[in-house]
């Protein structure tokens, strides 16, 4: 958590190792993610591309959520609402108005960001459990509303015409395209997360997380800072919702606003270490690997959810600061390197 203290004496020409050391908190997470991105090419299997798609999606969503949850301490339980709403808006534009994927993704991100901005002003006044409950309520309300909204297909949702993928060189090309688009978005989220964490804005968020009233007395304009954190954490899920359902080919209210998915994101953040840049990456990778293992293991297959629950409980009870947080506490030397 500490910020390097020796800036006063920074020499005019810095060596490469010094730069590496200073940005280790960014370079390590980027390195891990690049490795994940390269994995399908290394193995050359389509199946590992699909597995890594899930992992990257988890990492990107968990890292987005971490900007709010980890840095400002506000527990957004219904964060999937941004994934679903953005997905719906983009999907509608692609399927009805024949927009291309990228502008649709941008539209998805903008609508989620806008929703967060409007909601943030209202519900970020609520603290602790009340805020968590409100975010659940919002997700349920919006899902129920979309269920009744005929332009979006109501309860049946919408599907993409298969022809659409021709714009991207065919269905198989579109899968690779989706993968690399996701990879780029993941790298962007992580970079944003790092720069928020090490910025003055981020310091204000951390102060809010620790003690909001004390932060305000020190001049942190908490209502604004929280709202911007909320908006930042909502944009990428909106963008990725569009990408996910584009690849999926159809969208329906239930999978788009599945509360359980929200909670999985929180679990990943907790597992890796909330409030750190690397944590959600480790958490996303760890969670999905574990899930993959449990789902295919003959012993645990039938009770995979229960095993995952038991593991989650053990983490909450015994290493509440997550893997990265635990390492940082145990090995102070790592604090300079692991962010």
């Amino acid at each position: 958590m500490s910020i390097p203290t020796q800036t006063k004496a920074s020499p005019p020409s810095r060596t490469i190792t010094a730069v590496l050391k200073e940005y280790a908190g960014l370079l390590i997470p980027i390195g891990v993610v690049l490795f994940i991105i390269a994995w399908p090419t290394i193995t050359g299997k389509d199946i590992s591309r699909e597995a890594m798609f899930t992992v990257l999606l988890s990492i990107a969503l968990a890292s987005s959520l971490n900007i709010l949850l980890g840095y400002s301490g506000y527990v957004s339980f219904g964060h999937v609402v941004f994934f679903g709403l953005g997905g719906y808006v983009g999907f509608y534009l692609m399927s009805v108005h024949e927009w291309l994927l990228w502008p649709a993704m941008a539209a998805g991100g903008v609508s989620s960001g806008l929703l967060a901005f409007l909601l943030g002003k209202a519900i970020l006044r609520l603290r602790g459990g009340y805020f968590a409950l409100a975010t659940i309520g919002i997700n349920e309300a919006i899902r129920a509303a979309i269920n009744n909204f005929t332009p979006f297909g109501g309860p049946v949702g919408m599907t993409l015409n298969f022809q659409v993928y021709k714009n991207y060189g065919g269905a198989s090309e579109a899968l690779w395209l989706s993968f690399y688009t996701l990879a780029a978005m993941t790298l962007i989220v992580i970079t944003v997360s790092y720069f928020v964490r090490t910025s003055k804005f981020g310091l204000g968020l951390l102060a809010i997380r620790e003690d909001e009233d004390a932060a305000e007395i020190m001049g942190v304009i908490a209502p604004n800072a929280k709202t911007w954190a909320y908006v930042l954490s909502a944009i990428i899920p909106g963008v990725l919702g569009v990408l996910f359902f584009f690849k999926n080919g159809s969208i329906e209210p239930l999978p788009a606003f599945r509360l359980h998915f929200s909670i999985e994101m929180i679990v990943m953040v907790m597992l890796g270490g909330q409030g750190t840049v690397l944590g959600p990456i480790i958490g996303g990778l760890g969670y999905q690997s574990l899930r993959g293992f449990l789902l295919t293991s003959p012993i645990f297959k039938n009770i995979q959810l229960a095993v995952a629950g038991a593991l989650l409980l053990l983490i909450i009870l015994f290493i509440p600061s997550g893997i990265v947080g635990w390492l940082r506490k145990r090995v102070p030397a790592l604090r300079r390197v692991l962010r």
């Binding site: 968590a132 907790m270 995952a308 909450i316």
Partner: peptide
């Protein structure tokens, strides 16, 4: 929240 949610998952 997460502790009781993990009980949810287990059940």
């Amino acid at each position: 929240l997460l502790a009781t949610f993990s009980v949810n998952m287990i059940i």
